[in-house]
């Protein structure tokens, strides 16, 4: 069981992801944007962060950089629904900014489980 911080501004995405992770046996903290996420990670450092990339307040790439500054060994999965650039491009950027793993939205539970297993084993 791991402590996972989910940073996601979309209510339904956040809600379903948090419940799914709980059912998979993890303890979950949620944050509605990068600013809240970074603050939450400072108070209770998680084992793993799953963060969205395009968000209000503090967007994902900046969030990733700050999380890594505070906790250099933190494991991060970046997820994105794409945009002007392809999903691959955003996730490629996220890797350059310090996320080790990526998930393109929308993803199935099996896809999530596969990336989680990799991330938690690392």
């Amino acid at each position: 069981m791991a402590h996972i911080l989910v940073i996601e501004d979309d209510e339904h995405m956040r809600g379903s992801l948090a419940q799914t992770l709980e059912r998979l046996g993890h303890r979950v903290t949620t944050a509605v944007d990068g600013k809240v996420g970074v603050a939450s990670a400072a108070v209770a450092p998680p084992d793993l962060v799953i963060t969205d990339l395009i968000m209000p307040e503090k967007e994902g790439l900046e969030t990733i950089m700050e999380l890594r500054q505070h906790q250099p060994s933190i494991r991060i999965i970046a997820m994105s629904g794409g945009g002007r650039l392809s999903n691959e491009d955003y996730l490629h950027l996220a890797k350059r900014f310090g996320a080790q793993f990526t998930l393109a939205k929308p993803f199935t539970r099996d896809e999530l489980k596969a990336v989680l297993a990799q991330a938690l084993a690392s």
Partner: peptide
């Protein structure tokens, strides 16, 4: 982008 987020939520809740 918004649609992928919505679909992500629906997908999760369906499962």
């Amino acid at each position: 982008h918004d649609f992928n987020n919505i679909l992500g939520g629906i997908m999760g809740y369906v499962e």
